[in-house]
Amino acid sequence: MSTRWIIRLETLLSVGFTLGCLGALAGLATNVAIAFFDAPNGLGIPLRVLDIPVAGLAADGASIGDATAEVTVRPEGASPLAGLLYLLLWAPGTATGLLALFTVIRALGRARSGDRALFSAVTAGHLRRLGWILIVGSVVSAVLGSVAETILASMLLAESYPFYPPSGEVLGAVVAGFAALGVSEIVRRGLTLLEEVEATI
C-alpha cells in the first residue's frame, strides 16, 4: 500500500496542530491581558446575545424567528474573574481538539509502516483513545462553557439569560467520538479473526 497520501495527511495535520497550539497561546495571552491588565481595543470576550429585535427586517411574505448575535465585550480595567471564566469558556474545547488531533497524528505516524501497522491493536487503541477524548472532552467543555458563559453574561451584559446552550459542534464531536469507538471495535474484532485464521493455517 502506498503511504504517500498518509505522509501528506500527517504533514497537513501536523501543520494544523502547530497552528492550533499557536492559537491557544494567543488565547492565553488574551486571558492574561483581560485578567491582569486593561485589555486594549480589539481584545475582548465573545458572548452570545439572544432574542435580538428583528422588527422591520423581514421582507413582505416572510418572517424572522429568533435571532442570535455574537458581541465582543471588553471589561474596563483588570478583571481576574472575567479572565478565569473566559479561560473556562474556550480552553477545554481547544484542549480537546488538540488532544484529538495529536492522537490522529500519532496513529498516522504508525500507519506509515504498512498495512499490518495500520490494522493493529495499537491503531485500535489510538482510535479508542480518540473516541473517549472526543466524548468526554466535548461534554466537559460544553458544561464548563455553558456555566462560564452564563456567569460572564450576567457580569458584562445588561440583559442575560439563565442558560446558554452549547454550540452544535459539541454534538458533532460526540458523534465522531462514538464513530471512532465503533471503528476501533471493528479493527479489534478483525484482528481477532485474522489471528484465528492464521492459527489454523
Rank of each mutant, 00 (worst) to 15 (best):
168 G>L: 12
194 L>I: 06
8 R>S: 08
168 G>M: 13
126 H>T: 05
53 P>G: 08
171 L>D: 07
72 T>K: 09
88 L>H: 08
24 A>R: 06
79 S>I: 02
178 F>V: 14
135 I>Y: 10
191 L>E: 01
110 R>C: 07
89 L>E: 12
185 E>C: 03
104 V>E: 08
156 L>A: 05
26 A>S: 15
182 G>L: 09
59 A>C: 01
9 L>D: 01
11 T>G: 12
54 V>W: 01
135 I>W: 12
182 G>Y: 12
137 G>Q: 01
186 I>S: 07
115 D>E: 12
26 A>M: 11
144 L>N: 02
30 T>D: 14
7 I>Q: 13
19 L>P: 06
49 V>H: 01
155 M>V: 02
98 L>W: 06
103 T>Q: 08
22 L>I: 15
191 L>V: 01
113 S>E: 13
114 G>P: 08
161 Y>W: 14
70 E>K: 10
25 L>H: 11
36 F>Y: 15
144 L>I: 04
131 G>L: 10
126 H>P: 04
200 T>N: 07
88 L>P: 03
149 E>T: 09
65 G>C: 05
28 L>H: 09
179 A>W: 07
67 A>M: 08
189 R>H: 11
197 V>S: 10
190 G>M: 06
141 S>W: 09
151 I>T: 15
58 A>M: 03
52 I>P: 01
154 S>C: 08
57 L>H: 10
164 Y>D: 08
12 L>D: 06
176 A>C: 11
116 R>Y: 07
52 I>S: 02
41 N>W: 10
12 L>H: 07
10 E>L: 13
85 L>R: 00
112 R>T: 13
174 V>Y: 02
41 N>I: 09
43 L>Q: 14
58 A>W: 03
13 L>W: 08
45 I>T: 03
117 A>H: 04
183 V>L: 13
45 I>Y: 00
1 M>V: 09
17 F>K: 05
187 V>G: 01
77 G>R: 08
18 T>E: 12
127 L>E: 04
196 E>T: 04
37 F>T: 11
187 V>W: 00
145 G>Y: 07
116 R>E: 14
119 F>P: 00
96 T>L: 01
45 I>A: 04
104 V>I: 15
186 I>Q: 10
17 F>H: 13
90 W>E: 05
144 L>P: 00
53 P>E: 06
110 R>G: 08
187 V>P: 00
171 L>C: 02
138 S>T: 13
118 L>I: 05
56 G>M: 06
30 T>L: 10
109 G>D: 04
82 A>S: 10
33 A>T: 03
181 L>S: 14
171 L>E: 07
86 Y>Q: 02
178 F>C: 08
61 G>N: 04
76 E>P: 00
57 L>M: 12
69 A>Q: 11
60 D>H: 11
39 A>Y: 03
139 V>S: 13
145 G>K: 06
139 V>L: 15
184 S>F: 00
86 Y>K: 00
182 G>E: 07
172 G>H: 13
16 G>S: 05
165 P>A: 15
11 T>Y: 11
154 S>E: 15
29 A>T: 11
141 S>D: 12
121 A>G: 12
95 A>D: 03
163 F>E: 07
3 T>G: 12
50 L>C: 01
158 A>L: 10
125 G>M: 13
152 L>V: 07
